[in-house]
Design a protein around this nucleic acid. Sequence first.
DNA 1: CCGATGTTTCGGAATTCTTCGATGTGATCG
DNA 2: CGATCACATCGAAGAATTCCGAAACATCGG
Lengths: 110, 110
Amino acid sequence: MAETATSPDPGLVDALRALSNPVRLQLLMWLREPERHFPLEEAIADPAEVGVCVSHIQARAGLAQSTVSAYMAELQRAGLVKATRVGKWTHYKRDEQRIARLVATLGETL
Amino acid sequence: MAETATSPDPGLVDALRALSNPVRLQLLMWLREPERHFPLEEAIADPAEVGVCVSHIQARAGLAQSTVSAYMAELQRAGLVKATRVGKWTHYKRDEQRIARLVATLGETL
DNA sequence: CCGATGTTTCGGAATTCTTCGATGTGATCG
DNA sequence: CGATCACATCGAAGAATTCCGAAACATCGG
């Protein structure tokens, strides 16, 4: 059922809105290969495992810490990244499943 | 060359920004099956051929005519639709190639 | 040429976004 | 505990978006 699409899925719109900002899009793209875009030497934990901490993302982005923090929270609300706290560091990692599902949904409904 | 992505493709951001609005996203989705979402009887030309005119889109959307016109122009600038004027009616049709390429790009770079 | 119709463009009001600095919170170390 | 570090949240200023009605533009019919 529900074959007559009435209005766009809110989750889809949220994701698109999160991605519509060049900085946030860039952050998500950097996280595709963390070891490529962030200093591996300074990593407190395996990037592939837990992700990259806010400080490193902030240093790369060149924006205020509060801005980067808010952006990562927004990407998380949109379901594009997952957060893990390791000590005092919050690490953000891509949610590849959700991202893949988003692209698939776009291919089908868009 | 150019294998190290520095900043997101502006065209990609433009498309995502155009799609980040629920109304514009809806308009593009309606245009997937024009004959399904717009009155075929009143069509001045084959929807599959030239698309749907602004009046019909406006009636379905329930927004001011100037708003719908501006939204369609925005979708066109983002490369998601193509416009064709038939008499006094401007018809908008999806640019399926560009849309498919956008989804493919998202799958690869996002 | 006139008037009507479809569309675009302009100007503006309300809202949201972007980004910052300041402040708050939680964890660590001495 | 107290200081400090990493991060989150708050409050605010400026910019952009959303949406409208009015006016301008284009096209057709008479």
